[in-house]
Design a protein around this nucleic acid. Sequence first.
DNA 1: TTCCAAGTCTCATCAATTGAGACGAACTCA
DNA 2: TGAGTTCGTCTCAATTGATGAGACTTGGAA
Lengths: 247, 247
Amino acid sequence: MQVLQTTAACGYRGAAVDDYMDALELSRPTIYRLLKGLREQGFLRASPIRGRYLLGYELLVLGSQAGNGSGLRDLTRPRLLSLAQRLGDSFYLFALDGFSAVCLEVQNGKYPVGSFVRATGGRVPLGVGQASIALLAYLSKQERESILAHNAQQLEHEYGISLQAINKEIDHLLQVGYARGAEGSHLPEYTGLATPILDHSGHPLGAMSCSMLKSRLSEEHKLQVLQGMRDEVVELVQQAHGLLYIE
Amino acid sequence: MQVLQTTAACGYRGAAVDDYMDALELSRPTIYRLLKGLREQGFLRASPIRGRYLLGYELLVLGSQAGNGSGLRDLTRPRLLSLAQRLGDSFYLFALDGFSAVCLEVQNGKYPVGSFVRATGGRVPLGVGQASIALLAYLSKQERESILAHNAQQLEHEYGISLQAINKEIDHLLQVGYARGAEGSHLPEYTGLATPILDHSGHPLGAMSCSMLKSRLSEEHKLQVLQGMRDEVVELVQQAHGLLYIE
DNA sequence: TTCCAAGTCTCATCAATTGAGACGAACTCA
DNA sequence: TGAGTTCGTCTCAATTGATGAGACTTGGAA
């Protein structure tokens, strides 16, 4: 697995044997043996540049399945698309994973925007961003607290977000039905909105999220975005009955 | 890697230990050891169902990189999107991989359609479908012939496609600038169009493809689709200068 | 051609994985 | 609540199968 990670770390251009040698504490022959095996299985492929290796297409299949737990991604994708097209902002699907939220899907609209998460597969510690709030709010108290306790330091130091701010936003969400990001000291020019996606028992399956420049968030636009996301989520959950394998 | 494949094969619900036992000729303790390791690295995760395992989110990251060789996918994605929205059909990005074409990206429009490829990561033997034609046509003669020789049997038996039909379509493409699928005896109700994406030296980086019900392919619609794909590819290639790491 | 890096091979060593089976933990169902 | 079942871990001894050193071959580039 480290070979794959190393390959990924080398990006577009591919990884050379020396990259693996530096990263892996293995001998040259062993590295070649691993590379060969992984290539044969389709997990690596040769780069057009001789002597470099790229991630193989077998990972595509696994990756697209990995992000589609319970079929949620397939159901959400076209909806994010349509939101992004209609409203112009960037829309995201997040899911819980341990102490972080993982981005399962992004659709950028006409006015895409930087965010803490760059792309599919990106993570933020739970607590950062509006999607985190939407996910945390529907966990049991113990779960939520243990996650927040775990992340507290990092949230404070790296993102300038306090637990109070987070709890405040959770309350806000539970009152008004949508999530804003907790105020932190970073990326102050951006903002966003999120809606939880809950199963029939009230557990969070994921969150639909939207990020934009603060300057775009007029009251009117905010209502449009919220209404749009809510409508899509409601339809999604209806559609899910019988389609989502919740259990 | 077989553990991952097995997990994938079990789909949404996740794989149980017995699935691994059946698939892998390993003892129970060993399987648990592997599962543990893969979980720790994020390549597997626990399913909500006790005792079952799902693909982990780490694969998302690898998968999205794997499909983005040279940055092609990122450049193409929004264009497929816009085509799918404007024209209503399903649009695909394909790349070469050995003896097959791999689907790197799909965007379904309002009138999605079955095709030989179901989703991201899907493969068809080169020769099947319009994208294959677009890719094959720009390979060297030897490469093309060796690939076709390799696939000939399968093409004939499984898809009812003859080498003549393929060569005819390649000629057609070289004359008129777009590819149709070679006539086979399967899926006769569907049809499609494809455009190659070439680098500056004329090598095929990929192919943009579109599939639809035959009944939708009026002459007018055909022209629209072709024009749309061509425009997008031209822009894409321009945009690529300096962005695509061809080498 | 010459050169150099990429990739393979051989072989002896031995560390690390393996399986059997017992054990503990956790969930289910009565 | 308690019996039963399945999930997951642990121990330990046997041995396999991976490992590294270094020589060798291949193949592209100048």
